[in-house]
Design a protein around this nucleic acid. Sequence first.
DNA 1: GGTTGACTTCGAGCGCGCTCGAAGGAGCAT
DNA 2: ATGCTCCTTCGAGCGCGCTCGAAGTCAACC
Lengths: 120, 120
Amino acid sequence: MGITIQEASRTSGLSAHTLRYYERIGLIHPVDRSVSGHRVYTGPDLDWLVFLTRLRSTGMPIADMCRYAELRRQGPETSAERRRILAAHRERVRERIARLTEDLGVLDMKIEMYDTREHT
Amino acid sequence: MGITIQEASRTSGLSAHTLRYYERIGLIHPVDRSVSGHRVYTGPDLDWLVFLTRLRSTGMPIADMCRYAELRRQGPETSAERRRILAAHRERVRERIARLTEDLGVLDMKIEMYDTREHT
DNA sequence: GGTTGACTTCGAGCGCGCTCGAAGGAGCAT
DNA sequence: ATGCTCCTTCGAGCGCGCTCGAAGTCAACC
């Protein structure tokens, strides 16, 4: 019941070093330990890691993720605040996508110019 | 004919420090100087800066931009290679957008869970 | 002539997010 | 018992992309 840090690393895509780092900075709560002091990751731990990597890959700063993690530990009465954080982040992601899409268009044009030999 | 570094900074959105840094690392060719040794930016310089900021905002590493800049300085015979670089970068931008869009969907779902109080 | 202010070069420093290595402990195989 | 492997903590280091500050030059204005 529960997996080692190496297995958690494989399934989450984060290095063991990074998993310990995340725990150290409070991004994940102190993970259970085996009798020998080794970390034991459970299903909910992995779910949380997956969600964290989503937030990271969408560019949420570690500090914001820590804030969110802390609120989560404080219980259900912080859910409105957590929702607010996610909604604000969602807005930033939307803007990011819009910006990237626009830049992609420019890139397309530039490449087209190379194809028609009109480039500088 | 030509503008100062402060004006170039305003129009490009890059700080004067950053403009000098870009020149230092070869991202922009040595800019013309006035009699007193001050940088004088011209139209083509600004166009190039605008394009560079597009590449940056789409996440191209500085090193790749330097490579592209160097090829550009080498003349028209490098245009095939430059096209290749841009096309490869475009592909990465497309993947980035796809990934962000997917993550956005997950974010939407998560926020919806907060709204229906089914969240954990 | 003196002051102001924008410019110059150069090298050091910073913030972020890891990433790594040293030093040591526990469990298992031979 | 001797390795071997995987884990532990701790603190230092790194790569990227700037960012800043010191010290000096020069032009323009009062």
